[in-house]
Design a protein around this nucleic acid. Sequence first.
DNA 1: TTATGTATTACGTCTGTCGCAGTAATTAGA
DNA 2: TCTAATTACTGCGACAGACGTAATACATAA
Lengths: 125, 125
Amino acid sequence: MISSDVIRGYTDRMILYLLLDQPSYGYEISRQIRKLSEEKYVMKETTLYSAFGRLEKNGYVTSFYGNETNGKRRTYYRITEKGRAYYREKCEEWHVTMEVVGKFIRAEADAGYAAGRKGERDGND
Amino acid sequence: MISSDVIRGYTDRMILYLLLDQPSYGYEISRQIRKLSEEKYVMKETTLYSAFGRLEKNGYVTSFYGNETNGKRRTYYRITEKGRAYYREKCEEWHVTMEVVGKFIRAEADAGYAAGRKGERDGND
DNA sequence: TTATGTATTACGTCTGTCGCAGTAATTAGA
DNA sequence: TCTAATTACTGCGACAGACGTAATACATAA
């Protein structure tokens, strides 16, 4: 399971990714994220729909109503060119982030009990 | 440059990483993050110090005053065993996150103008 | 005396996520 | 037929983390 603070900042991009090929709607996106992440991340409804609003406000997607006659009416979202550009940009940022955050990882063994205690001596409280 | 929303959720861990070997203090940590990330990420003072407060509240670090006689008095922070455990946990989470987020990345060429338009036909607004 | 670097703290704002709850429609089952 | 489950979306309020701005405090160099 992934905590929301860690995944935060990627929600918009995940949604855009799922819109690259065809328009889609909330519930469907939700299921796809769950499936693609192998249940490791489940986006909450409110998070998802507020993201749609944000994306639309920024011109990254446009919305339209589906014409299905049964079930509750769906709101579909279609990615715009601006949205595609934003998506690409965010992908690049991801590579940089990976690189940077990776520098703050230490091999498990080294970060543990036995090791990493050599500095524990200059406290002067 | 990395936006804060993307790095959010890693601030605590970056700080803990820099405390693994020896206690340190705000200003120093700040410089180290800047340097280690090769200027790609600069943690704001307020972010940093509020993180210290959070970490201490949660028992991941303890603080003590330095006894330097010149300059403004420093507050040093030392990682606790609980903090080390938390750090290790967060490192594992990072691997999972990398894996999951990676699934929402598409090769640049494919995400662009030319490609990825095959679905752009079933709009019914 | 002014500016610069070191080092920390206060206050208020904004954004994104979430919990909880509710609405609305269809279908399946007892 | 009543009920529950599934699909699909929305509203409201709370909260945490990051940030802008600014102040404080000390030292040193120009």
